[in-house]
């Protein structure tokens, strides 16, 4: 890997996780305050994360295995926030009923 590819790739990897985190946070805050606009902003973040994953796959000298792993984890990032949110709601809701 060349020196400049090194810095570019590392930056893309960092931004990728950052975008995933931005999506998770905006989505959750959007749900919490019932603000669809925030949830939409979250989706934009995820699209950014996916675009970053694609950029990593197409434009960096990482080995193919890592590229596939990053593309796959972009999909996992997509489902984690809604899945966990719904799960937490179910858990708390069930708790209310039990009381």
């Amino acid at each position: 890997m060349t020196a400049s590819a090194l810095i570019e790739t590392a930056a893309l990897l960092g931004l990728f996780v950052l975008a995933g985190g931005g999506y998770g946070s905006l989505y959750s805050v959007g749900r919490l305050w019932a603000r669809p606009a925030l949830i939409r902003a979250g989706s934009v973040c995820w699209i950014a994360a996916f675009a970053l994953a694609l950029t990593i796959a197409l434009r960096t000298p990482l080995d193919i295995g890592w590229k596939l792993l990053i593309l796959a984890s972009a999909l996992v990032y997509a489902v984690i926030p809604p899945l966990i949110w719904r799960y937490l709601e179910r858990l708390h809701h069930e708790q209310e009923i039990r009381r």
């Binding site: 995933g20 805050v29 919490l32 890592w66 984890s73 990032y77 984690i80 966990i84 949110w85 937490l88």
Partner: peptide, 28 residues
């Protein structure tokens, strides 16, 4: 090289879950 790279790529995922959880809890 493969094992370390693979599993540490998974490490941020539970941390993201904790962020969602923290925000959920913040509501209550």
């Amino acid at each position: 090289l493969s094992i370390g790279g693979f599993f540490s790529a998974l490490e941020p995922l539970p941390l993201l879950g904790m962020v969602v959880h923290a925000i959920y809890d913040a509501g209550t």
